[in-house]
Design a protein around this nucleic acid. Structure first.
Length: 272
DNA sequence: ATGCCTTATTTCATAAGA
């Protein structure tokens, strides 16, 4: 079985690249992040053509996640219980469940696919450590941890993957000096990842197809990709039972090349 | 060659990304 996760940075803008990649890499389960469209406007028919069922969860311009599966898609969960809402100042665009109660952003979708509980996750960015967005990011990880802890009691086959927006170690950024004082590398963010691993989740570190670091993201600007100025922020956190099945994992950096790429590359994991 | 930002929307400017 082949599992993949990819922050596509708009499923509409990336549709030709996405379809081409799915056809070539043939993952059985594919987690997508930053679809940047609504659930209703997800290009479901095009993906169905390739043999995938779709669970999309998006609300418009920002964020949005999806799960594609050719091995079944059951017990779909758009978002998770206790998922916090952004804690900053609301404005006229803020989505409300009811007056005064904000809806969570569309950052998680879970489903059971081929006997594995799978989560496609897009963690908040955090912006700056002083920002309300940063506190929200840490709250979001804490709420996620609680949900995964509960699910792991019932389901040994589980994988939480996606864009975690945290580089686990200094080895996972191209130049740690550049990130001093920035989000993605602070001790509390790294502790949030450590708290997930403490549940028994294993970081499935992929092989970089070139260079020493398995980076998954390179900024569009300043020629970051050809210079390999990247970060490893797209992660596959697998339960021990899934980790025991891993036969290989790699970053498909070919997908970051050429015309109209996402700024993230897919992470591909093969399971026995 | 891997090649110097991109996306959707409140569009001819802005906010956000990490």
């Amino acid at each position: 079985m082949r599992l993949a996760t990819w922050n596509v940075n708009s499923v509409k803008a990336r549709l030709p690249r996405l379809l081409e990649w799915l056809d070539e890499a043939r993952p059985d389960i594919c987690c997508l992040q930053e679809i940047k469209t609504t659930t209703a406007l997800f290009p479901e028919a095009e993906v169905n053509e390739l043999g995938y069922e779709v669970a999309a969860h998006g609300d418009g311009r920002w964020n949005g996640v999806a799960l594609l599966s050719s091995v079944g898609l059951e017990d779909v969960s758009p978002g998770f219980p206790g998922e916090p809402s952004y804690a900053g100042e609301p404005d006229e665009t803020t989505l409300l469940d009811e007056p005064g109660l904000r809806k969570p952003e569309t950052r998680a979708v879970g489903a059971t696919c081929g006997g594995i509980r799978v989560w496609s996750l897009y963690a908040p960015n955090g912006r700056t450590p002083e920002s309300a967005h940063y506190a929200y990011k840490l709250e979001w990880f804490a709420a996620l941890r609680a949900v995964l802890e509960g699910e792991l009691r019932l389901q040994s086959q589980l994988v939480a993957c996606g864009d975690f927006n945290v580089a686990p170690t200094d080895e996972d950024v191209w130049d740690p000096a550049v990130f001093v004082g920035s989000t993605h590398v602070t001790p509390p963010e790294r502790q949030a990842l450590a708290d997930l691993r403490a549940l028994g989740l294993r970081d499935v570190v992929p092989t970089p197809m070139k260079g020493p670091h398995p980076f998954t993201y390179w900024d569009y600007r300043a020629g970051a990709f050809p210079k390999d100025m990247g970060m490893r922020i797209d992660l596959v956190y697998a339960s021990q039972a899934v980790a025991d099945r891993v036969t290989g994992a790699y970053v498909d950096r070919e997908a970051r090349k050429g015309k109209g790429p996402s700024d993230h590359a897919p992470v591909v994991v093969d399971l026995s």
